[in-house]
């Protein structure tokens, strides 16, 4: 029982980082209706920038965090300008494939600058874990969970309490109508993209600070975890992204504890597949009515 509860706690903590990744992903997908495969690799650019400063200049955790976020945003804006902004309506698959090509590009650029397989990353907190009866709680895990919840509320607040958010929701509803009533569509979309990348950057920094190391696999890892958590939570739902991440974290922690890492990954994909087949809307998203996203056309 203690194991089960401790695994659940650990899973929730790790899951909060998946939730954060999914949050950025869902904002991009919600606004664009297109899949940005370069989401993880953009964060990787930020992560490598932060690592570079840490190794070369001995930068502290806060400076590194700033660098990761700035790097992610710059890479994210680059992706938006190259893969999404110039594409015509209906060229959703082209955008997706283009973002995949840029994924390869970003990854190689990062590896060129820091070619080793692993690099150290500054820890967020070296404090001893807190003890609650038989349970242990890592301080950096708690900070991660707090960040995830705060950012989810912040995104929700921006979307539903600000004029900018109102405009963005109008664009999500109908971009042509939004343009006709004078909403600056392109600029709003770019800002949303940059914001989502910044959230991804925060997520990336927290994950790496907990692991205390960076590898070239990080970009792919971030894209996959964000994507899986987003789909489990329900496409387009902000609380869903967070819940999906937490659920994924708990499922992974439990199956890892009882069956080992291979079965952990198997179970995670099985849960995703089962959700898609039986409940495509995920935990909180709406079930797709007819054709959602990625339409055909020239």
């Amino acid at each position: 029982m203690v194991d089960l509860a401790q695994n659940t706690i650990d899973g929730l903590m790790i899951g909060s980082s998946y939730g954060l990744l999914a949050l950025g992903f869902t904002v991009i997908f919600g606004v664009m209706r297109r899949l940005n495969l370069s989401y993880g690799p953009s964060i990787m650019i930020g992560a490598y920038l932060g690592t570079f400063l840490y190794i070369q200049q001995g930068a502290g955790p806060l400076a590194v965090a700033g660098a990761v976020v700035v790097g992610s945003v710059l890479a994210g804006v680059y992706v938006e300008r190259l893969c999404f902004a110039p594409m015509k309506a209906g060229a959703a698959i082209a955008s997706m494939v283009s973002s995949f090509a840029i994924w390869m590009q970003l990854e190689q650029a990062a590896i060129l600058v820091l070619p080793r397989h692993t690099y150290p990353f500054p820890p967020l907190s070296t404090a001893l874990p807190l003890e609650f009866g038989p349970f242990l709680l890592r301080v950096d895990h708690l900070m991660m969970l707090a960040c995830a919840v705060l950012l989810a509320f912040a995104v929700h607040g921006v979307l539903y309490r600000t004029r900018y958010g109102l405009g963005l929701r109008a664009i999500i509803g109908n971009p042509v109508a939004a343009h006709l009533v004078g909403i600056p569509v392109r600029r709003s979309v770019l800002i949303a993209f940059a914001g989502a990348s910044a959230i991804g950057g925060v997520a990336g920094f927290l994950v790496l600070a907990v692991d205390q190391q960076v590898t070239p696999m990080f970009g792919m890892w971030a894209t996959l975890k964000g994507l899986v958590a987003m789909m489990i939570g329900g496409l387009g739902s902000i609380p869903g992204a967070l819940l999906g991440g937490l659920l994924l974290g708990v499922v992974e922690a439990q199956s890892q504890w009882y069956f080992g890492p291979q079965i952990r990954d198997l179970v995670a994909y099985l849960v995703l597949f089962a959700f898609l087949v039986m409940r495509p809307g995920g935990l909180l998203g709406e079930a797709p009515k007819v054709e959602i996203a990625l339409p055909q056309g020239t």
């Binding site: 997908f29 899949l35 994507l227 899986v228 789909m231 496409l235 990954d265 198997l266 994909y269 099985l270 995703l272 597949f273 898609l276 087949v277 495509p280 797709p288 054709e291 959602i292 996203a293 990625l294 339409p295």
Partner: peptide, 15 residues
Amino acid sequence: HGLYFAIATLAFAEM
């Protein structure tokens, strides 16, 4: 359809 189908095939292939 669309992204849902794409991700379902991805989950299957990884399994």
